[in-house]
């Protein structure tokens, strides 16, 4: 479904990715592991078109998208839920979600249905639907960010560190929700530092180090890999 073929990109002065190759098959959950600054978010920015690849190709269902504008990529069905969430802080929860469905703005009935689905997935968002997004707790903001991405009905959802800064109990719920979204048919590319939780719901993973892919394999292979265990699981 998504094929990243030898992509390099540069973000700011110090962050860059080199010769990245990733293959995501439809229906899978694929995990990108790595420390801060290893290149996960830069890879996501490049897929979403916020950053242009300096070399290499990105194919989405065999269509090249590495020269495509960000809004076109969203319309094609790749939606990112960014690490810093990028919500609209002064809009309320419901308005944020509705903006998430911007590309389906002509289909009012579908938007309403999606909105209900999000509220079902995250009931707390329904309770807070009239509150400004900027006033929510970190966990609620993360749910809102995922909910907003869900509203676009993506074929492929990019989730950048959804568990960052959240309490363990919330993290568990978060991964449960991600699993649900996947089971409904959305392919997921998930960047995480919480390797154990991420690999336990994923099919395969890639380990980033210094902007390059250092290791790749199925979830089981990575979970039993000594270096992965040492670096990310603490065992």
């Amino acid at each position: 479904m998504l094929k990243i073929d030898g992509v390099s990109a540069k973000y700011g002065k110090y962050l860059s990715i080199k010769d990245i190759n990733i293959d995501v098959v439809e229906g899978e959950i694929v995990v990108l592991l790595g420390a801060n600054g290893a290149g996960k978010s830069t890879t996501f920015k490049t897929i979403s078109g916020l950053l242009k690849a300096t070399s290499g190709k990105i194919l989405f269902n065999d269509v090249p998208i590495h020269q495509t504008a960000p809004e076109k990529i969203v319309q094609m069905g790749i939606v990112q839920c960014a690490e810093d969430r990028k919500l609209f802080p002064y809009m309320n929860v419901e308005q944020n979600l509705m903006m998430g469905g911007y590309i389906h703005r002509k289909r009012k009935a579908q938007l309403k249905q999606s909105l209900n689905d999000v509220f079902e997935l995250f009931p707390i968002l329904y309770e807070k639907r009239n509150e400004a997004a900027g006033l929510l707790s970190g966990g609620q903001q993360q749910m809102l960010a995922i909910g907003r991405a869900y509203m676009a009905k993506p074929k492929l959802m990019l989730l950048d560190e959804p568990s960052i800064g959240l309490a363990p109990l919330i993290v568990e719920q978060m991964f449960e929700s991600i699993k649900n979204i996947n089971q409904e048919g959305t392919t997921i590319l998930l960047a995480e530092q919480n390797a154990f939780a991420a690999l336990s719901i994923a099919k395969k993973g890639y380990v980033f180090e210094n902007g390059q892919i250092a290791l790749q394999g199925t979830a089981d292979e990575l979970l039993s890999n000594q270096e992965v265990r040492k670096a990310y699981i603490g065992a």
Binding site: V74, Q75, F88, P89, M91, M98, G100, Y102, A149
Partner: peptide
Amino acid sequence: RTIIAMAQNREGAQLVG
């Protein structure tokens, strides 16, 4: 609303299409 959205978060606006 796209005007408001872009003022509040430009990249967020791009990410919703």
